[in-house]
């Protein structure tokens, strides 16, 4: 690195030109060529995943994405996590309540009261925390297996489906940790309810 730069073409003026030409070139390479190449390859090789992992119901109608949570108001269905944005998937977000925020405490207490009313058979000491907390995205498609299990008595009572059958259904839609270690076991609420709906319609 001992060369000095007295050669022509390395003055500050030429740096400006190199910077401008380089700027435009890298805009094209990083901002157009790269994403187009990636999109092309992804669409060609894995179109299902690249287009949002959509799920269809029995009649072939798209009912949502496997990855995006939905709101289930009907107590016959398994409920997902709290979403301050009501699962609006075009504006992800949450309330960002700090642990010391009184509004957080109030919302959680209200959730617990509502839970007790809808699920009188399950003591609140069994109520898992993920079911009454707001997810980070407001779009969490999953609940923990425990959160699905505690809803079974309510759903069984409302639908007349035996608790064992419901537990089998939950187990079927419980995903393990990735590669057996990463992440947490989870139940996909939309997929679970989709199959529950099919059972109810029979």
């Amino acid at each position: 690195m001992d060369q000095t730069n007295k050669l022509p073409g390395t003055s500050s003026g030429s740096y400006v030109w190199i910077a401008i030409r380089g700027g435009i070139l890298f805009m094209i390479l990083c901002g157009i060529v790269y994403p187009l190449l990636c999109t092309g390859l992804a669409q060609l090789l894995m179109p299902g995943h690249a287009n949002g992992s959509l799920i269809k119901d029995a009649s072939g109608q798209v009912v949502g994405s496997e990855l995006i949570g939905q709101t289930f108001a009907d107590p016959k269905y398994f409920q997902g996590r709290v979403s301050s944005i009501d699962n609006a998937a075009d504006g992800s977000g949450s309330n960002n309540y700090a642990p010391s925020n009184p509004d957080l405490l109030k919302r959680t207490q209200d959730s617990i009261a509502a839970w007790q009313q809808a699920n009188p058979d399950v003591p609140i000491s069994k109520l898992p925390i993920d079911l009454i907390t707001n997810s980070g995205s407001g779009l969490d498609p999953h609940i923990s297996p425990k959160s699905a299990a505690v809803q079974i008595p309510r759903i069984s009572k409302l639908t007349g489906i035996a608790p064992d059958t419901l537990q089998q259904l939950v187990d079927k839609h419980t995903g393990g940790r990735d590669l057996g270690v990463f992440g947490e076991p989870r139940v996909n609420v939309l997929e679970l309810n989709l199959e529950l709906k099919t059972m109810l319609n029979k």
Binding site: P99, L104, S125, L127, P128, I129, T133, S135, E184, R186
Partner: peptide, 21 residues
């Protein structure tokens, strides 16, 4: 403050977190 409400908090603090993670 949340743990004191008597729910099952064995998962840790889940406010603002995702179940899969």
């Amino acid at each position: 403050a949340i743990n004191a409400l008597g729910i099952d908090h064995s998962e840790g603090s889940m406010e603002g977190k995702e179940v899969r993670l």
